[in-house]
Amino acid sequence: MNTVKKYKWTIISVLIILAIYLVNSSKGLMAVTLTVNNFKTMLSVLPPIFIIIGLLDVWVPRETMIKYMGDKSGILGGILAVLMGAFGAGPLYVAFPVAALLLKKGARLANVFLFLCIWSSMKLPLLMYEWASLGGRFTTIHIISSLAVYVLGSLLMERLLSSKARDIIYSNIELV
């Protein structure tokens, strides 16, 4: 019973694909192909990222993380967050466990937000690709406007979350 509950959403989503297939078989088959492709993408990055996270978790002492990305890390912490995000690999959902590890090791909340935002839309390989497909002007505006909003936004977000909410985040992270 517990297993069924745990995989409730998986079952529902399989039923959705089945329904699509019954209404329009070619769309249904396409959905299956696309899903298989998604799994391939996931398998191409997620397992090694988790291995790296697991090893970092064991090897990087909390004090080191606090020193470089903690509350008193200042602008260096921010720059590190941007760099880590820019060199990210894979879709955004891969970044969540990395961000969780950063928080667990005592990184500052604003830095972790900044890392997530940069990962989502300013990964370096992505930017090069964007430049090639949509042009330099488009990409430059994208970089400048996103960076400005994300830096200010991350600081603001940190302020917005009460210390109670922060405690909840940090205690949640311990469980994941």
Binding site: Y7, I12, S13, I17, G28, L34, F39, G54, Y93, P97
Partner: peptide, 21 residues
């Protein structure tokens, strides 16, 4: 952590496939 994430990741992958189709 992978085992813990599987029940959340699986439906996400499948729904993305469905929406894209």
């Amino acid at each position: 952590s992978i085992v813990k994430l599987v029940p959340v990741l699986l439906p996400m992958m499948i729904i993305i496939g469905a929406v894209l189709s």
